Amino acid sequence: MKKLEVCFTPALLHLYDLTGSVVVVIDIFRATSSITYGIDNGAKAIIPVATVEECIAYKDHGHLLGAERNGEVVDGFDFGNSPFSYSKEKVEGKTLVLTTTNGTHAINESKGADEIVIGSFLNLNAVCHYLVKQDKNVFLLCSGWKGKVNLEDTLFAGAVVHQLKFHFDTWCDASVLAEDLYLMAKDDLHEYMKKSSHSERLKKLGIEKDIEFCLNLNLIDSVPVIKDGMIVKG
Rank of each mutant, 00 (worst) to 15 (best):
K165H: 11
L189T: 07
G119H: 02
V49P: 07
G147F: 13
V23I: 14
L18N: 10
D78W: 07
V25N: 11
K133S: 15
D78Q: 10
H198F: 02
T9W: 07
K111E: 11
S85T: 09
A45M: 10
N125T: 15
L131I: 06
L164N: 11
V161Y: 11
F8M: 06
N218Y: 05
L15R: 15
C172K: 09
K203V: 01
Y182C: 01
L217I: 14
F77N: 01
N150Y: 05
F139K: 09
A126S: 12
M1N: 06
I116V: 15
K233W: 01
K194D: 09
L202N: 05
W171C: 00
S120F: 09
I28F: 08
S120I: 08
T170F: 12
L177R: 09
F213I: 01
S87R: 15
G158D: 06
R201A: 13
K133L: 13
C142Y: 04
V138D: 05
V138G: 05
I220A: 07
A174Q: 12
P83I: 05
V6S: 07
L124M: 11
Y192E: 06
E53S: 15
V117G: 00
I231Q: 06
F166W: 12
K209S: 10
F84A: 05
F166M: 11
D187N: 12
E212F: 00
Y130P: 00
L215S: 03
L98I: 12
F139T: 09
D228V: 02
L181K: 14
A67L: 00
N216K: 14
H129T: 12
R69K: 15
V24I: 10
N81C: 04
R69G: 08
V25H: 08
D188M: 09
V91W: 09
E89V: 12
N70G: 10
R69N: 09
F79Y: 15
G71Y: 02
S110F: 02
S222D: 02
A43H: 08
F213E: 01
H63Y: 15
S222H: 01
D188F: 08
F29M: 15
D153Y: 03
L141E: 03
L155Y: 06
K146Y: 04
L18T: 12
G38W: 13
K2M: 06
V225E: 00
H129N: 14
D188H: 06
E109F: 13
V161K: 10
V6E: 01
G66V: 02
C172R: 03
V161D: 05
V127T: 13
N125K: 14
E179I: 11
L122I: 13
E5H: 02
V74M: 02
A159N: 11
L96P: 14
I220F: 07
L202S: 02
S110C: 08
I56Y: 02
E92V: 09
E5W: 04
T99N: 03
F168H: 03
H14Q: 10
G144Y: 05
S199C: 12
K88T: 11
F84I: 07
K165F: 08
E179M: 15
I211P: 03
G76A: 02
I116N: 04
N70I: 06
F213W: 05
E92T: 11
D78Y: 11
I220K: 08
P83C: 04
S85G: 10
V23R: 13
